[in-house]
């Protein structure tokens, strides 16, 4: 039962990571590329690390619970910090005067 949940989380995390990678490669400019880099990587790593934390709980001993709690802490910090870092990078781009990409009128 636990394995199914873990596999589900891992696969969905992988889907988000793939989407993020495709987005970084295919989107046209700085800001749009930061969008998948910030959002998809956060959600993807969140799901994957959660899957690792769940997988670690197989025998449910006290030590494993402690380790899983530490892994959940990692999830928490990724959740807070990755969007903040993206925000800081975008902020620097705006302040440096980079114009967002628009569709040219033809």
């Amino acid at each position: 039962m636990l394995d199914i949940v873990v596999i589900f989380l891992l696969v969905s995390g992988l889907v988000f990571f793939t989407g993020g990678a495709v987005g970084i490669l295919r989107l046209p400019d700085f800001y749009t590329r930061l969008h998948p880099a910030g959002k998809m990587d956060t959600l993807g790593s969140l799901l994957m690390v959660l899957a690792v934390a769940l997988f670690n709980l197989h025998d449910f001993t006290w030590m494993q619970l402690i380790t899983s709690l530490k892994i959940v802490l990692v999830v928490l910090f990724i959740f807070v910090l990755s969007p903040t870092a993206t925000h800081a990078i975008v902020d620097a781009g705006v302040r440096a005067g980079l114009k967002p990409w628009t569709k040219k009128k033809e």
């Binding site: 910090f77 807070v80 910090l81 903040t84 925000h87 800081a88 902020d91």
Partner: peptide
């Protein structure tokens, strides 16, 4: 920047 400042202070 309020966001960066607050997050760094908490972190």
């Amino acid at each position: 920047d309020l966001i960066i400042k607050t997050v760094c202070r908490i972190l």
